[in-house]
Amino acid sequence: MKSLFLILLFLSISNLTFGLTVTTTQNLNFGTLVQGDSAKTIRPSKADTNNARFDIVGEPNRSFMVILPSEVELFSASTPSQTLKVGSFKSRPNISGSLNRKGKKELRVGAKLQKIPNGQASGSYFGYFIVDVIY
């Protein structure tokens, strides 16, 4: 049985408004899986230690909106033609939130990785996704 190590290695954020910064503090990590494993979901809750985390800093008490991708692909580092799909992105706060009185908020993002097909190339997989945070 071949094992796969899957991680979303880099997360990109769009800063669309002056005075709003978003910093990646942890990448989304699906861990080590093997061929035939069922789909794996990482939740955006504090209890799930593999979710992506971002620090949002901006104007105190200001409301914001979060835009997540619908689906992205992970690519094999050794066999780029081998891909896996990640979708069903969810965040906490969900869709919108407010910065606290110090102008800060933690954003957590989770997603669902597809079932690992039999015959999927073993190795590390990586991918990118964009999270937009807008005032």
Rank of each mutant, 00 (worst) to 15 (best):
L113H: 00
K90D: 09
Q120L: 11
E71W: 00
Y125W: 04
K105L: 05
L16G: 15
S70C: 07
S63W: 02
G19S: 06
V57Y: 04
L33D: 00
S63F: 11
D132G: 11
P93H: 04
V109E: 10
T21R: 09
I13Y: 01
A39Q: 10
E73W: 03
K102Y: 07
L68A: 05
I7K: 09
L20T: 14
V86I: 14
Q114W: 01
G110F: 02
Q114T: 13
S14Y: 02
L33M: 07
F54P: 08
N50W: 00
K102S: 14
F54W: 05
S122A: 08
S88H: 06
S98H: 05
L99H: 02
G87R: 04
L99R: 00
K2E: 15
F126I: 10
L6A: 12
L84D: 05
A121S: 01
V86K: 06
T23H: 02
T49W: 06
F64R: 09
G19F: 04
K90G: 03
F10C: 10
S14R: 02
G103Q: 08
L8T: 11
L84V: 08
A77E: 04
F5H: 06
T21L: 08
Y125Q: 06
P80V: 01
R53V: 14
G87F: 11
T21K: 07
M1S: 12
D37T: 10
S38Y: 03
T21A: 13
T49H: 03
V86T: 12
G58H: 09
N27P: 09
I95H: 06
K105T: 04
K40L: 15
D132T: 08
S3R: 04
